[in-house]
Amino acid sequence: DPTRGTSDDCQPCPCPTGVTCAVVPKSKEVVCTNCPVGTTGKRCELCDDGYFGDPLGQNGPVRACHICKCSDNIDPNAVGNCNRETGECLKCIYNTAGFFCDRCQEGFYGNALAPNVADKCKACSCSPLGTVGKQSSCSQVTGQCQCLPNVAERNCSACQPGFFNLQSGNGCERCDCNPIGSNN
């Protein structure tokens, strides 16, 4: 406040080098006014929306603000894609999940990091009749559902050869055909 006329009226801005500041008239609070790209806050201590880090190292080592790292599994038209401090991804798409949108959601399988959307995460679609506990989730990598006894296929939708009665919901039963009278 230069109007008071003392030698320490004007003080340097408590901001990163080259950044200007202003005093809020009502609260007398000093606020930085043009923080570097990706940073914001009274002292440029926070990351902007779409960025994450800890530019002044308030909670540990200094980490400059970087654009959200979400394995290309976020939409640039969305807001709040990642936590501004930790970088945890908050709006994964293409059925992905995880801190970096780097794995498939529950109930989906495949490679969340595949470059083509079609190759990313597909629904498990486990057959309810052939799956233990009618679960809807499967192995995240192979997509194998957890099948009841003597049930086959990735999605547990068929009996193993020589077995029948998937409809029972308890697994498949041996055919017990007489080998002499049967052709397979």
Binding site: V24, V31, T40, G41, K42, L46, D48, D49, V79, G80, R84
Partner: peptide, 9 residues
Amino acid sequence: LHLPEKVII
């Protein structure tokens, strides 16, 4: 309004 710690949409 100045709410530097917020992201206003």
